[in-house]
Simulated scan of single mutants.
Amino acid sequence: MSKFGEILNTPLPVLIDFYTEWNESSLTMHNVIKDVAAVLGDKARVVKIDVDKNQELANALRIKSLPTLMIYKQGKMMWRQSGELDANTLINMVQEQL
């Protein structure tokens, strides 16, 4: 989990997508997350975390459904939601933290 702290240690907003390769909604979000990252460019970080490979972190953050999306700013969680969202909604949510 120390790497998770390193991910959050940035002045930029960080959008995190918790997913798995076997969850259909997570797979649907892959392209959405790519689009969001492309639009945001260097204004924010976009990180994908596979909960199957990071179960300790997923348990600590109480990830119960997938995908779960979070926005952190300066190490503090600013927003969290589970389920599919469209790119424009996610972009607007991150831009509110700029």
Score class of each variant (00 low, 15 high):
Gln97Asn: 11
Gln74Lys: 15
Ala60Arg: 11
Trp79Asn: 03
His30Thr: 09
Ala87Gln: 11
Leu90Lys: 05
Asn88Asp: 10
Lys53Glu: 08
Trp22Cys: 01
Val94Thr: 07
Ser25Phe: 10
Leu27Ser: 00
Asp50Lys: 07
Val32Asn: 02
Lys43Ala: 14
Asn9Tyr: 01
Phe4Pro: 04
Arg80Pro: 03
Asn31Trp: 06
Ile16His: 14
Asp52Ser: 12
Val51Thr: 15
Ile49Arg: 02
Glu24Ile: 08
Lys34Gln: 11
Asn59Ala: 11
Ile7Gln: 09
Leu98Met: 12
Ser25Lys: 12
Ala44His: 04
Ala58Tyr: 07
Met77Ile: 06
Val51Asp: 10
Ser65Pro: 00
Glu6Tyr: 01
Glu24Ala: 14
Gln55Asp: 11
Leu90His: 06
Ile16Gln: 12
Asp52Gly: 07
Ser26Gly: 09
Leu61Met: 09
Gly83Ala: 06
Thr20Ser: 13
Ile33Phe: 03
Glu24Trp: 05
Ile71Val: 14
Ser82Val: 03
Gln95Val: 14
Met93Thr: 12
Ile33Val: 10
Ile91Thr: 10
Val36Ser: 03
Gly75Phe: 06
Asn92Cys: 02
Leu12Val: 00
Glu96Ala: 15
Leu66Tyr: 12
Asn92Trp: 02
Pro13Ile: 01
Val51Trp: 08
Glu56Met: 01
Trp79Val: 01
Tyr72Ser: 05
Ala87Cys: 09
Leu98His: 09
Leu66Pro: 04
Met78Ala: 08
Ala37Lys: 15
Asn92His: 09
Glu6Gln: 13
Val39Asn: 05
Asp35Glu: 15
Lys76Glu: 13
Ser26Lys: 05
Glu84Ile: 15
Leu8Ser: 02
Leu27Trp: 00
Glu96Val: 03
Arg45Ala: 11
Lys73Val: 02
Asp86Glu: 03
Val32Ile: 13
Val39Ile: 10
Asn92Asp: 14
Glu24Met: 10
Ile63Ala: 07
Gln95Leu: 15
Val94Gln: 07
Glu21Ser: 12
Arg62Asp: 13
Asn54Val: 08
